[in-house]
Design a protein around this nucleic acid. Structure first.
Length: 275
DNA sequence: CTCAGTGTTCAGTG
DNA sequence: TCACTGAACACTGA
């Protein structure tokens, strides 16, 4: 589940339960895939006994700042999350890391599909994958000119450019589709062909969607009813938006793309007439 | 049984 | 070298 808003929600959870606390006990599941570049038992030993001085995020990557380096870096992949609970018996299925504070609060990272990664790094901001990320649109949205420059050389479809974490950090499949729908842009348009006005629209909707999703703590039940999000799942050929617009599906940038031809089908030169 | 999926990486291609 | 595409990864759930 995790795109920028979901990861930000997990960051706040970790901050609430771990900031200022000592990690009295740390457990690591025996998983040589999710633990990347560090053995699980080494991870547990190194992190154990530290105090948490901060919880940071850039794009979809989250890390703990500790009073001693290296620091744990989490990437959730598809479907990973954090769980908070009070007793060992409640440790969730598919757990990879369990942190127990000296007060006894427990926080576990889960990762059923094992596409997530847990690393141990001296300085996450300066090391991959974080060092390869573009700006995070929640706290460092690029100005219009900078965003235009970022897109101006890209021949790939705008949808694919939005999914590229080196352009902007944190946009995933549903957010890309949501933004393009709200900005009335065809997801297949080459990024470099967008006009200044279209990029302005894209930037505005990008900021609005991310801020709103974060404001409701990534709880999709509280996303505005007008969003494509509520209607896009399942590739249902009958699917329609809240306004009754037909939703179509195609593959762009290797991902299922939900879009609304009657809203997003117009070219910039010959805008489709609204009725 | 088959296939899609809120993600990333890497080999292959032009 | 760069940019892009599609398969692979691993596993669940419909």
């Amino acid at each position: 589940m995790p795109e920028l808003p979901e990861v930000e929600s997990r960051r706040r959870i970790a901050e609430r339960y771990l900031l200022g606390r000592t990690l009295a006990r740390v457990s690591a599941a025996d998983d040589r895939i999710v633990f990347h570049g560090v053995l699980p038992r080494t991870f547990a030993r190194v992190v154990s006994g530290t105090q948490v001085t901060g919880v940071s995020r850039k794009g979809k990557i989250l890390w703990l700042e500790l009073d001693r380096r290296p620091w744990p870096v989490f990437h959730f992949g598809m479907g990973g999350t954090f769980h908070v609970y009070e007793t060992a018996a409640r440790r969730p299925a598919y757990w990879k890391v369990e942190l127990v504070t000296s007060e006894g609060t427990r926080l576990a990272m889960t990762n059923p599909r094992r596409l997530g990664r847990v690393r141990l790094q001296e300085d996450p901001l300066r090391e991959p994958p974080v060092s390869l990320l573009g700006p995070d649109p929640l706290d460092a949205m690029p100005p219009l000119g900078a965003l235009a420059a970022l897109l101006s050389r890209r021949a790939a479809p705008i949808k694919a450019a939005l999914l590229d974490q080196g352009v902007l950090a944190g946009i995933g499949n549903w957010i890309a589709d949501e933004i393009l729908y709200q900005a009335r842009l065809d997801p297949g348009r080459p990024a470099r062909d967008l006009t200044r006005g279209e990029i302005r629209r894209l930037r505005a909707r990008l900021g609005a969607v991310i801020r709103k999703a974060v404001a409701v703590d990534a709880d999709s039940n509280r996303f505005p009813a007008s969003w494509l999000f509520h209607h896009r799942w399942g590739k249902n050929p009958e699917a329609r938006t809240a306004r009754g617009e037909r939703i179509a599906y195609r593959t762009i940038g290797g991902r299922t793309t939900a879009w609304v031809p009657e809203v997003q089908g117009g070219s910039p030169r010959t805008p489709r007439r609204r009725r």
